[in-house]
């Protein structure tokens, strides 16, 4: 039973990992940008959340949509003013630009928020447990799981059935070609990055609820995000969800076997999966 509990907890934390990856998958899928500053945006959103919780006296979970909107705007401006200037056939310039951006963001956050670990005060909710089929699960991780999976579902329907969603998918397939249909692909990139960062905003808020964050937390989260995206197959949404869940379970099971192994087992699983399927889970059939 204890093992089952570990696996279920792994799935719960894995949903958050999947959400880290979802943003990265979206930026890559549509704008073909490998966003190295993704981890920093996750942490920045967490800090925005921490600040807002201090100002607005409502439950932190209700602040998630507000942070999503704020970060959506940041993402749109970022893509329109900076990233769109360097996108093109060569994938390296945008990657290097976001690399510079990640250094700036990380150290600016150290200046503004300091380096001490902080988290969002969840009151009694943080350590509340509940009994499910004989397992003791945290209430907060379950809530986070539900929110994460809902975001996946919401994004799925958005991309599949709305006009903007279709435009984004078409731009992802043929950025030059969609111009013939009156689509401004740069704007589409802007919306994609904005959406991607909104997903990481939700993830960052929930990360700050579950555990603590510092400006240096971004690096590890970026690694997880990248692993998730690549296991899933670059640009694939459902691949990202499966990738996140696999990594979450491996992480917790690994930590149970070998307490000070850090991300070792997820890293090894990442390599094994890629050796078998070099294009990730969703690229398996191609």
């Amino acid at each position: 039973m204890a093992w089952l509990e570990t696996i279920v907890n792994g799935l719960l934390v894995g949903s958050l990992y999947a959400l880290f990856g979802l943003g990265a998958a979206l930026t890559f899928g549509v704008a073909k940008i490998v966003n190295v500053a993704h981890g920093e945006f996750i942490v920045l959103s967490g800090f925005i959340g921490i600040m807002l919780v201090g100002i607005i006296p409502i439950h932190p979970l209700l602040l998630v949509p507000l942070v999503i909107v704020i970060v959506f705007a940041i993402g749109f401006i970022l893509q329109m003013t900076l990233l769109n200037r360097v996108v093109g056939k060569d994938p390296i310039p945008p990657m290097l630009l976001t690399f510079g951006l990640s250094i700036v963001l990380k150290n600016a956050m150290v200046e503004v928020f300091g380096a001490t670990p902080r988290s969002i005060n969840m009151g009694g909710l943080r350590f509340k447990g509940m009994e499910v089929f004989g397992m003791t699960l945290g209430v907060l991780p379950v809530i986070i799981f539900v929110i994460s999976v809902s975001l996946f579902v919401a994004l799925h329907f958005f991309l599949k059935y709305t006009r903007v969603g279709r435009t984004l998918r078409a731009t992802g397939d043929e950025a030059q070609f969609v111009q013939l249909f009156g689509v401004n692909y740069r704007r589409a990139f802007g919306v994609a990055t904005a959406l991607a960062l909104s997903m990481s905003a939700a993830a960052g808020m929930m990360l700050a609820m579950r555990s603590t964050i510092t400006p240096f937390t971004g690096g590890d989260r970026l690694l997880i995000a990248f692993e998730v995206v690549i296991i899933g197959g670059l640009g694939s949404m459902w691949g990202a969800l499966i990738g996140g869940l696999i990594l979450g379970v491996t992480h917790l099971v690994g930590l149970r076997i070998d307490p000070n192994s850090g991300l070792l087992y997820p890293d090894i699983v990442f390599f094994i999966i890629l050796t078998i399927m070099p294009r990730g889970i969703s690229g398996w059939r191609q």
Partner: peptide, 10 residues
């Protein structure tokens, strides 16, 4: 340093 990298890229 990060800003220099960004500006050079731009």
């Amino acid at each position: 340093m990060g800003s220099v990298a960004v500006v050079v890229m731009l």
